[in-house]
Design a protein around this nucleic acid. Structure first.
Lengths: 207, 207
DNA sequence: CCTGTAGGTGTACGGCATACGCTTAAGACG
DNA sequence: CGTCTTAAGCGTATGCCGTACACCTACAGG
């Protein structure tokens, strides 16, 4: 009976994500999204209650692309966890601006819960105790979230490294030395290296 | 010759921190800080160029309380790293609102650089290679930053756990099971557990 | 006491989220 | 085909925000 909507919710979320990818999270505003979809600012409010809800749709759009099905069980479990971690990093890394949104809205994302479900499943198969699973899931999340943020907010291998390399070597001997080597470690190796350490620590708890 | 300032920069930063502790990072505004110090909004600009600089002063105030001197060397190096990590967590955890600021301004904080200098020093004494030190420092930072954020933005042991425990057990069997046990792991144990795993992984790289 | 300088203030502008009320497009029904 | 109903979409206004700019003024040096 009434006038039909001219936009799907997915189109709206996609427009908001486009704004973020293009102008960063700081560029995200109801006005900018409205312009992106070619509507007035207030028209957006026919689709979402407020900005917060728009953000939720954006992260659901992004995380919706993460494959949450368990990897094949013919590999050792740390490798399977690594696959799960990389799936998140690959998707989220393509949209670094949304990282703060994911942290803020994380407990409301069914997609992330499903990812966690799969991860805990792998940890259970691996034989970890209840307590070890709690700590394992949390520390994986903490590491992944922290690593993605640091990577996309001035990576150590990047312009930040230059600033560190320029530190007075007398006051910061180790840091200026480390910065020299940091350039030779790319971000993939860095992420993988830290994750491997974390997993190795979890493994060594086992009998 | 001119009129003297009626505020020290430290007093200003402290006022801003008070606002953050009281109303969260979202409550931080030039107007709010001005009211806190009993001055007009624009008076703040006699002390800082812009909001960004005010934020830098806040994190320097917070991180300034972190002891960056190397711990006594009579303990094994992973314990010394743990001491360093706990020093940051204790201070920053008391002001969770500033965590996003620390991430944003981290490469400009001399205090955090000094902390890193000490940590890398310990890793060097431990015998890690250049490459391992780069990865070690970065993964420690990533873990600490991520863990503090998760902890103060809906901890798994806390109200967020209830939401997870209420998930349909048929769809999320592992998560609802894990949530039941999560309540018995307090945040200190959680942080310590993940850190221990990470350090164990780094240790096992050694000969 | 006078005066130059910098500290502090008031006002104003453009941008933000969003409440509210209006106009209008278009499917449903006669 | 005409009309009616209902939500879609829009314009305006309010109260936040950071901050530019012009102004007044307290005070240390002379």
């Amino acid at each position: 009976m009434p006038r039909p909507r001219s936009l799907t919710p997915a189109q709206l979320a996609s427009a908001a994500l486009h704004v973020i990818d293009h102008d960063g999270l700081a560029g995200l505003s109801m006005r900018a999204v409205a312009q992106q979809v070619g509507m007035s600012t207030m028209a957006i409010y026919r689709y979402v209650d407020d900005r917060d809800e728009l953000e939720q749709h954006v992260i659901e759009l992004v995380l919706g692309a993460v494959d949450t099905t368990p990897p094949t069980t013919d590999r050792p479990w740390p490798e399977r966890i690594e696959i799960m971690a990389n799936r998140v990093r690959d998707i989220v890394g393509a949209h670094p601006g949304v990282v703060p949104l994911i942290i803020a809205h994380r407990h409301r994302s069914t997609r992330l819960l499903r990812w966690s479900e799969t991860v805990v499943g792998i940890l259970t198969e691996a034989g970890l105790t209840d307590r070890e699973r709690v700590i394992g899931l949390r520390s994986l999340l903490a590491y992944i979230v922290g690593a993605i943020q640091l990577e996309h907010h001035g990576p150590l291998a990047g312009p930040g490294t230059q600033a560190i390399a320029d530190l007075p070597p007398t006051e910061f001997p180790h840091m200026s030395e480390t910065a020299r080597h940091a350039r030779t470690v790319n971000t993939d190796e860095e992420f993988r290296g830290g994750l491997t350490n974390l997993l190795r620590g979890m493994t060594s708890e086992l009998p």
